[in-house]
Design a binder for these strands. Structure first.
Length: 711
RNA sequence: GGGGGCGUGGCGGAACGGUAGACGCGCCCGACUCAAAAUCGGGUGAGCAUCGCUCUUGUGGGUUCGAUUCCCACCGCCCCCACCA
C-alpha cells in the first residue's frame, strides 16, 4: 500500500492522475457499481437486475500522455510479434485532421470532428453526433426534441457492449433538425444523432462520407441520404462504399490529386483559415483507475471543505483500509469505505478534510511488484535505484497472452513514469516476454449438452459412453472449467505421481507456447520414466546402491546418448524448448537401463541436467551417489561434440529424389567413393539400367541422390 | 470486418530444405506370476504384398536434384480486437 500510494502521489504531482466524470455500470436495484464481467446484456448476471450507465467522479490515469512512447518503445523489446501488434492496435494511433463545422443559423456554435480522410470533405453529406455529445440538447430543433430525447435515453440505457457487439446490426439514428456548414463549400448538411458514433473516440462527432466509408454508406441507405463520390476508384459508390485510393473528383480545391496529396492540401487550406488542423488520434483512452470496492489500496488524498484536492503527506503513508463489518456500498451508492465515518474525516494542516473513499483496482500492485522483488524491505523508496540498476529490468517474463493489452500495457506505463521520476534506469520493465500456452482438458458431453466428469466415462470400442448408463458422449478439448467438469486439480496429480512428475510432464507435453490438452496417462508415462531413473541408482529390493554403478569408463553408445541429452537440455533452456530435452533424457535412461556397468560420472552429469526438471528426485539421487553439494549448484555439464560423432554413418540413397536404399558407410568418406558405393548397391543398380546419371547430389554422411535421364 | 496463430499416426507431439512419425501415451505379443498389478523384452502410419513396391504431413498449384519445412491460392480450427470515423 505504502509504495503504491507513494507512486500515485508522484502521478498526481505530475498531472498524470486526475479526477473526471467517468461511466460506471450502475445497478439501481442493488445500489452498487458492477465490474464489466458482472454485466451481460444489460443486466447483473447474478440477479438479473437491470444495469445502466452512470457517470461518477473517478480517478483517471493519463496513460494517453505516454501513447507515443508506449508505441515506439515496443521496438526495444524481445516480445512475441503478436503481442506487440495487439498493443499497437490497442493504442491505435491514426493520423488525420480535426475539422470544425459551424452549426448553421447559430452564430458561435460549432463542433469539431476527427477524420482520417480530410480529402473526402466534399463528400460529407451530413454529420453525426454521439447520443452523449454535449451539443445534442442545445441544437435540437423543438419539433424534433421528443424523438431525439427518446433516442438518447434509449442509447444511455444500453451498455457499450450492446451498442457495439452486433456489427451487422442495423443503423439507427434521428435527425436533430439542425444543420452544419461544410467548411469547404459552405453547404448546409443535416446533423443527426446516432449510436454508431462513439462518444469515447475522437470528439464524439463525425462528418459522414457515405461514398467512402462503409458505416456511413449503410446509414445513408437506411435513411435515404445522398451519396456523393469524391474519390474516383472505378466503382459505383451508390452501390458500395469505395474506401481505397484514387483521384479526387467533385472537389474543386483538390480535383485530380491522389489521396495523399489531397489530404495534405485540404488540411493546409483548413489550417490557414482556422477551420482545422493536423491531429494524431489514439484509440487508447485514459485509464479509469478507481473502484467502488472495499479491498484495494485507498487513494492517499483527501478533499478540503471547499472540495479542493489535498495530497496526504508522505509520512502519512500507508493509508490502510479501515475495519468494517459491512463491505457493501452505502445505501445512497457511495463506496464501502464511506461507511467508516471515523476514518473518512482527517485533519490536514488544521483543515477538516474528507478522505477519498474509492479504492485502487487490483492492477495497481501488479504494475510494479517486480520492482519490489528486487528490494523487498526498503523503507525509504519503492525500490533502491542502485539495486534496481543491478537487477533490472526483468530479463524474462513468462505469462499468458491474456495480459497482452491489460497488465503488460499498464505496467509499461507505470514503469515509464518511474523512469521519468528517476527511480528506474530502463525505459521498459520486461525485456523478453514469453507466452506460455494454456493447458486445456478433454470434456465429455452427451447429446443434451450435459457434461460428465472423465471418471464417469469409459471407452467402448470407438465410442465414449457414461459407464453407469451407457449414454454415448462426445469428447472435445476445451478450456478447463467447473461447468464443463473437466478441471484437473494439480494437487491430485502431485498426490498420485509426485511434484516432479507433474513438472516434467508439463514440460514434456509439447512446446511451452502451445495450447494443449492435459492427459493424465501422459503424466503416468513420465512417472514411469522417473521411476526408471530411480532404479538406475537404487536397488528397490534392498534400498542399496545398484551394483552396476561405479567408476567405470563411459561406453561409446551411452556417452553419445548422454552428450546428446546435455546438448539438447542446454540449448533448450536458452531457447525455452523444454519438451525435446525430456525425450533425450529418456533415450539416455532407456539405454542405461540395460547396461551392466553404469559410470558414476555419467550419472553425475545426467542428474545435473535432470535437476531443473525433477529437482526432488535429482537431489535425492545426487546425495545417495555421495556426490558433493547439490545437483542444482553446478557446474552445468558441457557436451563434447566428439562424443556425438559416429564412426559408421547410415546414408540414405535416393534415386530421382525417392528413397531406394540405405547403407552403412565410414564417416567422412569422400564424395566420389561414397557415390561409387551407392551405385554398386543392388537396389540402386536396378534403377540405373538403361539410364544415365546426370547429377550426383552428395550430402556428406547423410544422403546421396542420383538424378537420371533415359539413355 | 481487422490482426495474430495453427493443421503431421488412434492420441500428445519430433524432424539445420536431406531416410517423415524421435520420445511418450494407447494397443498387440512374449517373459515373470497360481493369477492380476508392477516390471522387463519385442512389435505397432495405411495398403499391396513378401529380394520389395505404392500411398501418406488439411486441399490444389509453384520453386528445387529433393518440400512437413520456402512461395501462392483455397478449406478448416483457435486466439485477440472490433461501428475507432
Amino acid at each position: 500500500y505504502r509504495w503504491t500510494q507513494w507512486i500515485f502521489r508522484k502521478m498526481v504531482e505530475r498531472g498524470l492522475a486526475y479526477l473526471a466524470e467517468g461511466p460506471v455500470h450502475w445497478c439501481p436495484a442493488q445500489g452498487t457499481v458492477l465490474a464489466n464481467e458482472e454485466v451481460q446484456d444489460g443486466v447483473y448476471v447474478e440477479t438479473g437486475d437491470p444495469v445502466e450507465r452512470r457517470m461518477m467522479r473517478q480517478w483517471m490515469l493519463r496513460i494517453t500522455a505516454y501513447a507515443d512512447r508506449l508505441l515506439e518503445d515496443l521496438d526495444l523489446l524481445d516480445w512475441p510479434e503478436s503481442v506487440k501488434e495487439m498493443q499497437r492496435n490497442w493504442i491505435g494511433r491514426s493520423e488525420g485532421a480535426m475539422v470544425t463545422f459551424a452549426v448553421a443559423d447559430r452564430p458561435g456554435c460549432a463542433f469539431e470532428v476527427f477524420t482520417t480522410r480530410p480529402d473526402t470533405l466534399y463528400g460529407a453529406t451530413w454529420c453525426v453526433l454521439a447520443p452523449e455529445h454535449p451539443l445534442v440538447d442545445g441544437i435540437t430543433h423543438p419539433e424534433r426534441e421528443a424523438e431525439v430525447r427518446a433516442y438518447v435515453a434509449r442509447a444511455r440505457r444500453q451498455t457499450d457492449q450492446e451498442r457495439t457487439a452486433a456489427a451487422e446490426r442495423e443503423k439507427t439514428g434521428v435527425f436533430t433538425g439542425a444543420y452544419a456548414v461544410n467548411p469547404v463549400n459552405g453547404e448546409r448538411i443535416p446533423i443527426w444523432v446516432a449510436d454508431y458514433v462513439l462518444i469515447t473516440y475522437g470528439t464524439g462527432a463525425i462528418m459522414a462520407v457515405p461514398a467512402h466509408d462503409e458505416r456511413d454508406h449503410a446509414f445513408a441507405r437506411t435513411f435515404g441520404l445522398p451519396i456523393v463520390e469524391v474519390v474516383s476508384g472505378g466503382r459505383d459508390v451508390q452501390a458500395e462504399a469505395w474506401t481505397g485510393g484514387g483521384v479526387a473528383v467533385n472537389s474543386p480545391l483538390i480535383d485530380g490529386l491522389a489521396v495523399r496529396e489531397a489530404k495534405a492540401h485540404i488540411t493546409a487550406w483548413l489550417e490557414e483559415r482556422g477551420l482545422g488542423r493536423v491531429k494524431v488520434q489514439y484509440k487508447l483512452r485514459d485509464w479509469l483507475f478507481s473502484r467502488q470496492r472495499y479491498w484495494g489500496e485507498p487513494f492517499p488524498v483527501a478533499f478540503a471543505p471547499d472540495q479542493s484536492l489535498r495530497l496526504l503527506p508522505e509520512d502519512a503513508l500507508p493509508v490502510t483500509i479501515p475495519e468494517l463489518d459491512d463491505f457493501r456500498p452505502t445505501e445512497d451508492g457511495r463506496p464501502p469505505l464511506a461507511r467508516a465515518s471515523g476514518w473518512v474525516e482527517v485533519d490536514l494542516d488544521g483543515e477538516r478534510c474528507v478522505r477519498e473513499t474509492n479504492t485502487m483496482p487490483q492492477w495497481a500492485g501488479s504494475c510494479w511488484y517486480y520492482l519490489r522483488y528486487m528490494d523487498p524491505h526498503d523503507d525509504r523508496l519503492p525500490v533502491d535505484p542502485e539495486r534496481e540498476a543491478y537487477w533490472g529490468p526483468v530479463d524474462l517474463y513468462i505469462g499468458g497472452v491474456e495480459h497482452a493489452v491489460t497488465h503488460l500495457l499498464y505496467a509499461r506505463f507505470w514503469h515509464k513514469v518511474l523512469y521519468d521520476v528517476g527511480l528506474v534506469h530502463t525505459k521498459e520493465p520486461f525485456q523478453r516476454l514469453f507466452n506460455q500456452g494454456m493447458i486445456l482438458a478433454f470434456s465429455y458431453r452427451d447429446e443434451g449438452g450435459r457434461y460428465y466428469h472423465p471418471d464417469e466415462v469409459e471407452q467402448r470400442g470407438d465410442v465414449s459412453v457414461v459407464r453407469e448408463t451407457g449414454v454415448p458422449v462426445e469428447a472435445q478439448i476445451e478450456k478447463m472449467s467447473k461447468s464443463k467438469r473437466n478441471v484437473v486439480d494439480p494437487l491430485e496429480i502431485v498426490d498420485r505421481y509426485g511434484a516432479d512428475a507433474l513438472r516434467v510432464y508439463e514440460m514434456f507435453m509439447g512446446p511451452l507456447e502451445q495450447v494443449k490438452p492435459w492427459q493424465t496417462s501422459g503424466a503416468q508415462g513420465v512417472h514411469r520414466f522417473l521411476q526408471r531413473v530411480w532404479r538406475l541408482v537404487v536397488d528397490e529390493e534392498t534400498g542399496a546402491l545398484q551394483p552396476a554403478v561405479g567408476d567405470h569408463p563411459l561406453p561409446r553408445d551411452l556417452g553419445r546418448a548422454l552428450h546428446l541429452a546435455i546438448k539438447e537440455t542446454t540449448e533448450g533452456i536458452e531457447g525455452i524448448r523444454l519438451n525435446t530435452p525430456v525425450s533425450r533424457m529418456m533415450e539416455f535412461v532407456n539405454l542405461a537401463t540395460g547396461a551392466d556397468r553404469l559410470p558414476r560420472e555419467a550419472m553425475r552429469a545426467f542428474l545435473a541436467i535432470l535437476a531443473p526438471y525433477a529437482p526432488h528426485l535429482a537431489e535425492e539421487l545426487w546425495e545417495r551417489l555421495g556426490l558433493p553439494g547439490r545437483a542444482a549448484d553446478g557446474p552445468w555439464p558441457t557436451w563434447d561434440p566428439a562424443m556425438l560423432i559416429e564412426d559408421l554413418v547410415e546414408v540414405a540413397v535416393q534415386v530421382q529424389g525417392k528413397l531406394r536404399a540405405t547403407l552403412q558407410a565410414p564417416r567422412d568418406l569422400p564424395a566420389a567413393e561414397l557415390a561409387a558405393l551407392v551405385k554398386a548397391h543392388p537396389n540402386v543398380v536396378r534403377y540405373l539400367e538403361g539410364m544415365t546419371v546426370v547429377r550426383e547430389v552428395v550430402v556428406p554422411n547423410r544422403l546421396v541422390n542420383l538424378v537420371l535421364k533415359a539413355g
